[in-house]
């Protein structure tokens, strides 16, 4: 997708269809990423809507942006973290991480549902930054380089987080589950 020409069309021509293209392209990814921080799908939808509204109403700001993708992810990261800190349900969700039942995709239906569910619960228990890096990379939202820019860390550190995530998940899976112990 040619983001630069879309941004120009949005800022200069006030082209609604260009805005919609941008919206369709990033909406699900941004909501998914935000929900991994807030643990609240509905609020994340609102946070993303607010962000996209800003893109539409203050387009002059976006013209100076080099990479719209990392800009949007960085912005939604900050908004999600702010939301989390002022959210009164914060404590509640932290103590009930299993409430974060992200709606499943059709692909999920093909593989062992129960296992995926268990796996996603383990992902929720990862340390926040490790979880953030893991979600960004694993869920195909970003490359290492993009994740590094969004999280404002080096690509090396992103890789460290992925390694930590893999190690922890492996340990947890082996602890909880005879599923993988046997035949490997």
């Amino acid at each position: 997708m040619d983001c630069t020409s879309l941004l120009l069309a949005i800022a200069n021509d006030r082209d609604e269809s260009a805005f919609k293209k941008l919206f369709y392209h990033f909406y699900d990814d941004l909501v998914h990423f935000s929900a991994s921080i807030t643990n609240d799908f509905n609020s994340s939808e609102d946070l993303v809507a607010d962000l996209m509204l800003k893109v539409w109403t203050e387009p002059k700001d976006i013209l100076s942006i080099k990479n719209i993708k990392t800009y949007l992810f960085k912005a939604i990261k900050n908004r999600s973290l702010n939301y989390l800190s002022r959210s009164k349900t914060h404590e509640y969700y932290l103590s009930h991480p299993h409430l974060n039942d992200v709606p499943s995709t059709p692909e999920d239906l093909l593989i062992s549902k129960e296992f995926i569910k268990q796996f996603n619960q383990l992902v929720d228990k990862l340390p926040p930054k490790t979880k953030m890096a893991f979600i960004l990379v694993k869920d195909n939202l970003c490359s290492y380089a993009e994740a590094a820019e969004i999280m404002e860390i080096s690509t090396h550190t992103v890789d460290r987080h992925i390694q930590i995530a893999l190690q922890r998940l492996k340990a947890e899976l082996e602890k909880n589950n005879s599923l993988i112990n046997s035949e490997l």
């Binding site: 998914h32 692909e107 035949e183």
Partner: peptide, 18 residues
């Protein structure tokens, strides 16, 4: 199958598609 499940869990996006 268990290895396939494991691989899928690590590589399938949990992202919702509207």
């Amino acid at each position: 199958q268990k290895n396939r499940d494991l691989f899928d869990a690590f590589t399938t996006s949990a992202r919702n598609s509207s």
